[in-house]
């Protein structure tokens, strides 16, 4: 009958004392500077190619698109998109920003976009995979489950702890990305505009809903989606951790599934029903930019629904098994 907060405190402490989060932090602190350096090299290369005439280039693109807007042969929805593009280009020109030069915010955005399929799941799994299985493999589950607490409360506390750490991982990744890349690229870029609202329909991109938001807002939207995708991965990992006794087995199972997802995404265009697999739907933040999805007909709403259903099913299995299972070893 101990209150849930005390149980959550217990679970959070255990993960913390195992230094799992410290290791993740260390990995981030080592890897992100490497990426920042690579990005810096790319920026230097392109700066050498284009020299100083980026203003002239921007100006000519603005002129081209403004001309196109007055043409009658261009459909209305295309004009909308062009108007938004002109807006964005004008913003760069007015604020003296070279769009080819990265800033801390664009770097963070790009990094998160690329991290959502593998890197973030990997970090989340480091914590989720042994949340239950480690208690079983070390035998501490016998102490844990013979205390006067209902089993569902214990699993709920573990789930709450997992949510806490997943959120912490996303926030920390964004922060470290921003802080380290800012050293090199400068900390500006929060109110630079980005286009959102693309609707991919079949082979066409529906641009009627396109509008510009600031990069700050965009980062928030993107991080939210990344968080959702990471939560679904972690909840499924929790289920595997309940079902499998060994931490290694549960980690490998999940990692294989995630990697299989990224491979499938590249070849699933002809296997249509693959879109119902959770691991093909993890890259939900790419919908914001209008990138074509792995399987035709997938939309942001569709992916959110598929992920949500998988997550809910995983939770039901976890709680049913955990509250009923016999602890035989």
């Amino acid at each position: 009958m101990a209150n849930l907060l005390a149980l959550i405190q217990n679970e959070t402490l255990k993960v913390w004392k195992k230094r799992r989060f410290a290791v993740l932090l260390l990995i981030l602190l080592i890897l992100i500077p490497v990426f920042v350096y690579a990005q810096m090299k790319i920026a230097q290369n392109s700066a050498e190619k284009f020299n100083d005439d980026w203003r002239a280039e921007l100006q000519s693109r603005i002129t081209d698109n403004t001309n196109a807007l007055s043409s009658e042969r261009i459909p209305e929805e295309w004009k909308k998109w062009r108007r938004a593009l002109v807006q964005q280009l004008q913003y760069y020109l007015d604020h003296d920003i070279n769009p080819q030069t990265p800033n801390a915010v664009t770097f963070t955005l790009t990094f998160m976009d690329n991290a959502v399929t593998l890197f973030i799941p990997l970090m989340v799994l480091a914590i989720a995979s042994d949340l239950v299985s480690s208690e079983r493999s070390t035998g501490t589950i016998k102490m844990l489950l013979t205390r006067p607490v209902r089993r569902w409360r214990i699993l709920f506390a573990k789930l709450a702890t997992l949510t806490l750490y997943v959120s912490l991982i996303i926030i920390t990744t964004v922060l470290i990305c921003y802080l380290i890349s800012g050293l090199v690229f400068g900390y500006s870029g929060w109110d630079a505009p980005v286009f959102v609202g693309f609707q991919v329909q079949g082979a066409d991109v529906d641009t009627t809903g396109v509008h510009a938001v600031t990069q700050g807002v965009y980062l928030l939207m993107q991080s939210g989606l990344v968080w959702f995708s990471a939560m679904v991965v972690s909840v499924i990992a929790l289920m595997v951790s309940v079902l499998v006794r060994s931490t290694a087995a549960s980690f490998v199972t999940m990692m294989a599934t995630i990697i299989a997802g990224t491979i499938l995404s590249n070849m699933a265009s002809s296997w249509k029903s693959a879109k119902y697999l959770f691991n093909v739907n993890l890259e939900i933040s790419s919908y914001l930019r209008g990138t074509p999805p792995p399987v035709e007909g997938m939309t942001l709403g569709f992916s959110l629904a598929v992920l949500g259903l998988w997550g809910a099913a995983a939770l039901i299995v976890s709680f049913t098994v955990f509250t009923k299972q016999d602890i035989l070893n």
Partner: peptide, 8 residues
């Protein structure tokens, strides 16, 4: 402490 927290 951990196990004490599990019982009121």
């Amino acid at each position: 402490e951990h196990f004490a927290r599990m019982q009121a």
